[in-house]
Amino acid sequence: MSVNSIGDYSFDSRDKLENFHGAMLVFIQWEQHLVYCAPFAFPLPPDMLLGDVMKNIVLPAYAYHPDSEKATLEDFEKGQWLLDNKPLQADFTKSLAENGVKHQSILRVTIPGLDGLVGQGSAA
């Protein structure tokens, strides 16, 4: 039973891929940097390079965090990545799709040594 209803009941997902005009929903978080309260949601073309996403969209978005001055694009590429809870060898020269990112995927990155405002475990 997928719903308790009085009759036939079947709907499309309101957030199906086709509704995003060629983009897909991607969620990105720099872990332990909870000055930013939640992961970002972006509509991104699947063929956009991961490096471009990071350089042009994600890093500017984190600009307010003091750690952002300390981290280069390279640091991010070498960081520890999780894609949908599985380790990812991020390749910035490849597209989101080639990196395995799908609609509604979650990308999480950690850069060892950059753990937020007051060090490991404080999450700010």
Partner: peptide, 18 residues
């Protein structure tokens, strides 16, 4: 009841859908 919640009107994603 997945069939109910897949219709959720999620504000952020509605903004992105225009």
């Amino acid at each position: 009841e997945p069939e109910k919640y897949i219709q959720a009107w999620l504000p952020v994603y509605q903004i992105y859908q225009g």
